[in-house]
Amino acid sequence: MPDMLTAEPFLGGYTLDLGDVAVAEVTDISIVSIAMPLGGGDALANAVQAAWGCALPAPRGTSVSSDGSVTLIFSTPDQTLAILPGVDGLAVTDVAAKLGDVGYYTEQTDNWVGLRASGAKSISALERICPLDLASMSVGGAERTVMEHLGVFIMREDDERFLLLSGSSSAKSFLHAVELSMRNVT
């Protein structure tokens, strides 16, 4: 299909390495929101278990599929964000097919811009904009909060590595906020 449209990352795949701290746009993920039907929690949990070999995530946490390819983030009391390997087009179709008629699925890939912040000074940089106690956040923990007026999911991937998701329309402003924080502490 020679005519198909080409995707452009929201920040053109931006990366910056300042030594003690670095930031890079994450462009290889898809995101699908899964809503739990009223009274249908068990059915959804079973389907998730069957499909991915993991439970639904608890509040403030994530849950990773047995093959490591899918990370589920607690989003609301009845919604979960699934982070999956990036695909062309929509990921929601695959997820809906995989889990079946036990949830409501919404494509979210393009709602979000992903940034990965890493390095020894990542907490020093992020504490300039993030109200959460990152030092106490466990690896695998995920929260949603607000940074510089922008809603952000923050997930601790490792001691010195965080995944940040924020609205794609304000991607430039979000990057600016993160990058300035990094420059201010280096």
Binding site: P59, F74, S75, T76, P77, E143, R144, T145, V146, G151
Partner: peptide
């Protein structure tokens, strides 16, 4: 009533 707009939307 408080709405967790920048959180879990509860």
């Amino acid at each position: 009533l408080w709405y967790h707009e920048q959180g879990d939307r509860s």
